[in-house]
Amino acid sequence: GVTLFVALYDYEARTEDDLSFHKGEKFQILNSSEGDWWEARSLTTGETGYIPSNYVAPVDS
């Protein structure tokens, strides 16, 4: 299955590639091989962008 991640904090995008999000928003991670910045798709907005990996945690299934 796909592991979903949930935002622990609000984040405001600093570049066009970043994804702004709110605490509690859920994400599907598309690429986590880039280190501290993961490519993710928000399940709330459907938008794709980079998120700071230390702002999210796995959702307990």
Rank of each mutant, 00 (worst) to 15 (best):
W37Y: 07
W37Q: 12
S20Q: 04
F21C: 06
R41M: 12
E25Y: 06
S61W: 05
E39L: 09
S42R: 11
Y11A: 04
S42N: 14
Q28F: 13
S53L: 05
V56T: 06
T45L: 03
S61P: 12
T48R: 11
V6H: 10
W38T: 11
P58D: 10
Y11F: 13
Y55I: 06
S42V: 13
H22V: 12
V6R: 10
I51L: 12
T45N: 14
T45K: 05
L4A: 07
L4G: 13
I29N: 02
D60Q: 14
Y9N: 15
E47M: 10
F21L: 07
L4D: 15
S20A: 11
G49M: 01
V59M: 13
R41P: 00
E34I: 04
L19T: 03
P58L: 08
D10T: 04
R14S: 14
A13Q: 15
T3H: 03
S32M: 09
N54S: 11
R41I: 13
E12Y: 11
G35C: 12
S61N: 04
Y11M: 08
H22G: 12
G35K: 10
L30F: 04
T48V: 05
I29G: 02
V59A: 15
Q28R: 09
V6D: 06
F21E: 01
N31I: 05
S32W: 09
D17R: 12
P52W: 05
D18E: 09
E39Y: 09
D17F: 05
T48K: 14
N31P: 03
T3V: 02
F5K: 10
L4S: 11
W37I: 13
Y55N: 04
I29D: 02
K23L: 04
T48E: 09
F5T: 09
T45S: 13
G35D: 15
R14T: 06
S53W: 06
G49D: 01
E12L: 08
S20E: 06
D36Q: 14
D10H: 02
G46M: 06
D17A: 09
G35M: 11
V2S: 15
L19R: 02
G24S: 05
T45R: 09
I51M: 04
F5I: 06
T48L: 07
L43D: 09
S32E: 10
L19C: 04
E47G: 14
E12K: 14
Q28A: 14
F5D: 01
G35P: 09
P52C: 12
G46R: 11
T44L: 09
F27H: 00
E16W: 04
K23E: 10
